[in-house]
Design a protein around this nucleic acid. Structure first.
Length: 480
RNA sequence: CGGGGCGUAGCGCAGUCUGGUAGCGCACAGCGUUUGGGACGCUGGGGUCGGGGGUUCGAAUCCCUCCGCCCCGACCA
């Protein structure tokens, strides 16, 4: 039975999602600011966990953090033709400052390739300055027509990496390395979310990029969510911003740049991939609180021994397990169980008078809701058992999501099969069509090519639309 | 941008059709009893009815107008 206040997932997926956001206390609508949300502490803590996991990997792979201005001269956007076409409709402008009309309007950054390109042009002189590997954690703004908490908001938080290289091959290597070693690794290992790594089609690529790679994840309604992208920008932005360097042979050359980003949209992915009718489900490795301890006592006589047991049990957890002792005395245990389940804490430990007596505790796992996931275990060796359980839950969530993805990915040989398949999940098929063909299919099915997967069969087949022979397979799906 | 919905206490809503001076649940405060799956009783506090204008003896309610938010769709790194 679903929790009070949560519309069952099977009944109305979209409403279920919004109910989780509200009931897990992740965010509030900004109300007075169109299309924006307030990240409440529970939601922001998840973002901090995501930041931690990504920042570690970004730094391990040789990048450093920096910060560039929020405002960008409007003319900068115009310098790259595809870029301005892609972003102009959704930028917010600042036209006044200090009570006066500005000589040149600024835009609030929708992404920072342009302003960073301007500075990179100043900083890069020689091949010895390369590669330049910088990341920034920032907010950006895109005046989206339709917004949804976390999935698409007018203002969102993200990281955007911007690098400069001496050769095309090096830029390509960087683009793919980020995709694999930073994004896919993080999302799969920490968020327990299997992804498909692939290349975007011409129609779906980043405005101004040579090639865009992405990781695509499947949500529980079978729709796709782009969880991260990495772009090889070629020399497009280097030409637009005049990023040049002198090579070993004293020849001046345009540099090769990349950019890559993931955003607070990942919180939306987390919700839609793992949660259930009881509330949010957070994988243990990501969870800000991995274990919540609920002490149970009726009176002061019971309180002492129970709290003593709680202190003893958790004494060795510091630095090993992220935990919280919920000793609020103005809420009943039942209320607390429900609240922590809503918030997705992976494991709950209950300690009451009976446990003190028997040397046990009750352990409830969030991935198996209700009493079914609850068992009584000895206090002896509890820390180890909980660590093992957290690991088991982490693997279990990943396997469950992987199985779901596999069971909802369909091979299609005909257009009719494609149409049927995208109603329920991903469709994998041969493709040799044009951008126009892709657009027509989108109009007819609401599905788009999410990516050209990096792992290809290597044998030919016939294109689902044109019938031409090709070795290229793509993934079609409806996307968020 | 098209379609729909909503704006009344912190939150969720009723009241609007048929005008008579604002109510319910939750939350909140106090007291007491409770506490192993969303506790209960009693008492109490809290409202420019989205803004402006109009009609009327009288407007949450009728009329005009503006604004905002949400949902669906289209669009979309």
């Amino acid at each position: 039975m679903p929790k009070e206040g949560i519309t069952p997932r099977a009944e109305d997926y979209s409403q279920w999602y919004l109910d989780i956001v509200r009931n897990a206390d992740l965010a509030d609508y900004a109300e007075v600011v169109r299309g924006c949300i307030v990240f409440k502490p529970t939601g922001y803590a998840i973002w901090e966990a995501i930041q931690r996991g990504l920042d570690e990997r970004i730094k391990e792979t040789g990048h450093v953090n920096a910060y560039f201005p929020l405002l960008i001269p409007k003319s900068f956007l115009m310098r790259e033709a595809e870029h301005v076409e892609g972003f102009a409709p959704e930028v917010a402008e600042v036209t006044r400052g200090g009570g006066e009309e500005l000589a040149e309007p600024y835009v609030v950054r929708p992404t920072s390739e342009t302003i960073i390109g301007y500075f990179y042009a100043k900083w890069v002189r020689s091949w010895r300055d390369l590669p330049l590997l910088i990341n920034q954690w920032a907010n950006v703004m895109r005046w989206e027509m339709r917004t949804r908490p976390f999935l698409r908001t007018a203002e969102f938080l993200w990281q955007e990496g911007h690098t400069v290289h001496a050769t095309e091959a090096e830029a390509e290597r960087e683009t793919l390395m980020i995709l694999h070693d930073v994004y896919a690794d993080f999302v799969e290992k920490e968020m327990a979310l299997p992804v498909i790594r692939g290349l975007k089609t011409e129609k779906e690529k980043f405005p101004g990029a040579l090639r865009s790679y992405c990781i695509e994840a499947m949500m529980q309604d079978g729709r796709a969510l782009q969880a991260g992208t990495s772009h090889n920008l070629g020399q497009n932005f280097a030409r637009a911003f005049d990023i040049t360097f002198t090579d070993q042979h004293n020849t001046v050359q345009h540099a090769w740049t990349t950019s890559w980003g993931v955003s607070t949209r990942l919180i939306g992915a987390l919700i839609m991939a793992h949660s259930d009718d009881e509330g949010l489900v957070v994988p243990p490795r990501l969870a800000p609180i991995q274990v919540v301890v609920v002490p149970i006592h009726k009176n002061d006589a019971e309180r002492g021994p129970v709290m003593e047991a709680v202190a003893r049990i958790t004494a060795s957890w510091k630095g090993r397990i992220r935990f919280k002792i919920d000793d609020r005395d103005n809420q009943t245990p039942g209320y607390k169980y429900n609240e922590w389940e809503l918030k997705g804490v992976p494991v709950r430990v209950e300690v009451g008078p009976k446990d003190v007596e028997k040397g046990t505790v009750a352990v409830a796992r969030r991935d198996i809701p209700g009493r079914a996931g609850k068992s009584f275990v000895a206090q002896e060796g509890l820390s180890e058992r909980i660590e093992a359980l957290l690991d088991e839950i982490q693997q279990g969530l990943y396997q469950r999501a992987l199985r779901f993805q596999q069971e909802h990915t369909f091979a299609a040989a005909t257009y009719d099969e494609l149409k049927a398949g995208v109603e329920r999940g991903f469709v994998r098929c041969y493709w040799d069509g044009s951008s126009d063909d892709e657009k027509r299919i989108q109009d007819e099915t609401r599905a788009t090519i999410r990516c050209i997967p990096l792992d290809q069969p290597g044998v030919a087949g016939s294109c689902i639309y044109t019938g031409r022979q090709t070795t290229q397979q793509v993934i079609f799906a409806r996307a968020y």
